[in-house]
Amino acid sequence: MKFFHLSDLHIGKQLHHYSLREDQREILGQVTEYARQLHPDAILIAGDVYDKSVPSAEAVRLWDEFLTGLSRISPRIPILIISGNHDSAERLQYASALLKGQKIYLAGEVTEQGMTRVTLTDEYGDVTFYLLPFIKPSHVRHLFPGEEPETYTEAVEKLIRNQNIDFINKRNVLISHQFYRGISDPETCDSEIFSVGGLDQVDASVIRKFDYAALGHLHGAQSVGEEKIRYCGTLLKYSVSEASHQKALHLVTLGEKGDPLKIEKLTLHPLHEVRKKKGTLSELLAEVSPDERNDFISITLTDEEELYKPREQLDQVYSHILEVRIENTRTRRKLEELDETVKIQSPAEAFGEFYQKMQGTRMSEEEERFMDEIFEQVKGE
Rank of each mutant, 00 (worst) to 15 (best):
R36P: 00
S56L: 04
Y308W: 07
R171L: 03
C232Q: 01
F194A: 06
T111E: 12
D8E: 03
G198F: 08
I321P: 05
D211T: 03
F179L: 05
R325K: 15
F134I: 02
L335F: 08
N328L: 05
K262Q: 10
K228D: 04
A213N: 11
K52Q: 12
E373H: 11
G101A: 09
D295E: 14
D51Q: 04
P290N: 10
I175E: 01
P137Q: 08
I82M: 05
R117A: 14
K13H: 12
H320E: 05
Y308F: 11
S184R: 15
K170D: 14
I73D: 09
I82T: 07
N294L: 07
E226W: 00
E154M: 03
G108T: 11
S223A: 09
D122W: 09
T68F: 10
H5Q: 07
I344P: 00
L335Q: 15
K52H: 15
F144I: 09
M363I: 08
L322Y: 02
T267A: 15
E22H: 14
L268G: 14
Q102I: 01
T280C: 12
F210E: 00
T341K: 14
C232K: 01
H86F: 11
T341G: 01
H177S: 02
F144S: 07
Y34P: 03
H250W: 13
Y318G: 02
I297Q: 04
T151C: 03
L92T: 06
E323T: 15
E242Q: 11
H245W: 08
I79T: 14
E367A: 13
I207S: 02
L249M: 13
G182M: 02
K52M: 10
P290Q: 08
Y308L: 08
N169M: 02
D259V: 04
Q359I: 03
K136D: 10
P260V: 07
H177W: 01
P149G: 11
R21S: 08
S71H: 09
I297V: 15
V224M: 00
F66W: 11
L322E: 02
P78H: 02
F375T: 00
E187P: 01
V49Y: 00
L335Y: 07
N164C: 06
L38Y: 12
I79L: 13
D166T: 08
T151F: 02
I82V: 14
H320F: 10
K277I: 15
K228V: 03
V110F: 11
G258I: 13
W63E: 06
S223C: 06
S298L: 03
D8M: 05
I297T: 07
V54Q: 11
K278E: 15
E353V: 00
